[in-house]
Design a protein around this nucleic acid. Structure first.
Lengths: 235, 235
DNA sequence: GTTTCCGCTTCACCAAAGTCAAGAAATCGG
DNA sequence: CCGATTTCTTGACTTTGGTGAAGCGGAAAC
């Protein structure tokens, strides 16, 4: 049912990584996959939560629609990341909507299956809690970012997360379009453009969807700066 | 060990509410309580997470300290609310710090106890997941607030959450000091003051730690307004 | 009672970012 | 290859909210 490569990706996911192989496989055997087109909805906020999802490829965004139609992006996930764990067990409705932002393939795991297996194998509960914790941690980090960093600093942080290396220079490909990056960072696309300009002073060059960072350490220092630190003027 | 009134509060908490009474009690029998003075630290971000906490009375804030010493408040909890569920099982370190903001009493439940019991009684896992989901939902709501609402709107939302009634007028007591309210809403105390002033136009009066809302519906409408809606000028 | 301290508010100023609008650049369909 | 749509950037303007300083008032301490 699942292709070999799908299995490999799913097993790497936090959700399954800590489980013994036999257990992971017996869950994965009962899971299904589905492809989504760019822009297609996976679920809407308010839908009854019955499944847990694991991204096999492509990108999926989770977002909240406000009463007035504005959207607040809450997470953007790619290969190996799961979502929906906690809510599917709390038996409620999804508090966010999910949409494929590129063509994507997702693994669906019905919560009821896991729920049944959980009685025999309590490790499952811990695996799910680990995933849930990861989400909590991610949200807390986002809150901190929003409350304590300027737009340009958030952009710097975003770029640094994409860097493999810890120092020196590096070139990265922006993983999805700038409109979405702006949403993820809680700003308007216009402000993202301006933030990129501002980062030029820190040795960052953007062209098309490539970002070149001249000095990772320098950028990291910029990102960590106190908000009220214009002593050293915008260079 | 636990007083009768403590038991009653703990049983109401999301964490225990869904559990059969015998199970809840056997957990609570193995839990301890402790009192904290105003300002006392419960744990620090980075501490190994061994316990889950339930607030019995008083108020506790969860916050993150940035590298530069700024703090970002991530939650403020009172009677019946629990925290630390997910992380205690993921076996990691607390990603936030916790501090009593008033004199407070907390129930401590060692994660290892729950962990052991979980094998026999899988309902426990679901109770914990429900609590974790509640936190997730709360954080998502905060993100939406920050990204989509102005300061004054966030204050309005905060006040409305404290209202029991759904319409008409109401008077509420601010549950903790304004500095903390400002932190919880992601703004400076000065900005909170200004926001209160702005809300006067919406029929909100603040004196000392009392807030009088003349018309709940009106305030709710104000809070729901699109950010880009100054067509009807700031009245 | 008076002093001190703390929490809160107000003011003036400024930087950050949203809004509106126009234009450039890239992408896609024919 | 060309036109049309979408995405991105830029500019001018406005609003929001942060910053620092000053002032007010209440509560606890002397």
């Amino acid at each position: 049912m699942l292709e070999r490569s799908d299995l490999a990706i799913a097993r790497e996911a936090v959700l399954f990584a800590s489980l013994p192989e036999d257990l992971a496989d017996s869950i994965l055997n009962r899971a299904t996959t589905r492809s989504y087109r760019r822009g297609e909805t996976v679920f809407l906020q308010g839908d009854p939560a019955e499944s847990i999802f694991v991204v096999l490829n492509g990108w999926v965004k989770l977002f909240r629609l406000t009463s007035t139609g504005a959207e607040a992006v809450v997470g953007v996930f790619t290969k190996g990341r799961s979502f929906g764990e906690a809510v599917a067990f709390a038996g409620g409705a999804y508090p966010v909507s999910a949409e494929a932002v590129t063509d994507a393939r997702l693994l669906h795991v019905r919560a009821s299956i896991l729920s049944n297996m959980m009685s025999d194998r309590p490790e499952i509960a811990k695996a799910i809690l680990s995933s849930a914790f990861r989400h909590l941690h991610g949200l807390v980090a986002q809150l901190e970012q929003l409350k304590a960093h300027t737009g340009a600093q958030r952009v710097a942080e975003f770029l640094l997360e994409l860097c493999e290396r810890g120092s020196g220079s590096c070139t990265i490909t922006l993983p999805y379009d700038k409109t979405l990056i702006a949403g993820r960072l809680g700003m308007q696309p216009q402000s993202l453009s301006r933030a990129f300009n501002r980062l030029e002073a820190q040795g960052v060059k953007i062209s098309h969807n490539q970002a070149m960072i001249a000095d990772i350490e320098r950028l990291r220092e910029y990102m960590l700066q106190d908000r009220s630190a214009p002593w050293r003027k915008a260079e």
